[in-house]
Nucleic acid binder design. Structure first.
Length: 268
DNA sequence: ATGGCCGGTGGAACCGGA
């Protein structure tokens, strides 16, 4: 089973490029981020015509996540648990019913910039960095519950985390950034350390692997990228990992997203 | 060497992104 994650930066803007990539890559399941559409306006037919079941969790203008699946989806859940006042559409999960059931979570983790800190180094309450770190605490709680279920599970999406210096072309440019600050990386590492396998690093080592290139400053032409889109696999899912790749060449096409797809192949 | 964009909203400049 091929499962992909793709931050598309607007479903309307990607109405041509996304179906083209689907037709080529033929993923069984895709989690999408930054669809930037309310559910009623999501162009479901583009995907249903290709045999995908479609589940969306959108909001007006920003954020928004979705799952496309050629296999049936069950027990769909929208929104990351832990804060009923959080209305941002950044989390969707569902069970894919194949030979064996697989729980798939699609996430769009908050960016967190600008970083605002109190004199004691704690994040300023109500600020975007505080929101990011609080969201990651809720993600950790959900991750723990997933592990406890002992069902094969994965959490995939735009984590907005550069895990290591080698995951950026210019790591020095990201030292103070919310994507790479120590608090952000530590929060990410605490989640991984619960027992998850980061699929890409289980298959590939070394620098030069990126999933995002800014539209600005000729970043793509200079290969000035960062690796911020990740798959975290539960132990039961990690046992099934066959492959993990980043579809880099998509970034060089017409009207690209600033992210490219990342995918795993699981023996399931 | 430096700076360079894009999408959505709403119908012009902004906001948000990373």
């Amino acid at each position: 089973m091929k499962i992909a994650s793709f931050n598309i930066n607007g479903i309307k803007a990607r109405a041509a490029a996304l179906p083209q990539w689907l037709d080529e890559a033929q993923p069984d399941v895709v989690v999408l981020q930054e669809v930037k559409s309310v559910d009623e306006a999501f162009p479901r037919a583009l995907f249903e015509d290709r045999g995908y079941n479609v589940e969306t969790h959108g909001q007006k203008g920003f954020n928004g996540v979705a799952i496309l699946s050629k296999l049936p989806l069950e027990d769909v859940s929208r929104g990351l648990p832990g804060d009923d006042d959080d209305l941002q559409a950044r989390w969707i999960e569902a069970t894919v019913v194949g030979k064996q059931a697989l729980r798939i979570c699609g996430l769009y983790l908050p960016n967190g910039n600008p970083v605002e800190l109190n004199p004691d180094g704690s994040p300023v309450a109500g600020g975007k960095y505080a929101y990011k770190l609080a969201w990651m605490e809720r993600l950790k709680a959900r991750a723990q519950a997933l592990l406890k279920s002992e069902m094969p599970a994965l959490m995939a999406g735009d984590y907005n985390i550069i895990p290591q210096a080698e995951d950026a072309k210019r790591p020095e440019a990201w030292i103070e950034d919310a994507l790479h600050r120590p608090e952000s990386r530590a929060a990410y590492q605490r989640i991984v350390n619960l027992g998850f396998t980061e699929a890409f690093r289980a298959r590939h080592q070394g620098p030069g692997h990126y999933s995002f290139w800014d539209y600005q400053a000729g970043a793509w032409n200079k290969d000035d990228g960062i690796r911020i889109d990740h798959f975290l696999l539960s132990p039961q899912a990690a046992d099934l990992l066959l492959d993990c790749q980043i579809d880099k060449e998509i970034r060089g096409r017409d009207k690209p997203s600033d992210h490219v797809p990342i995918w795993v192949e699981l023996d399931i």
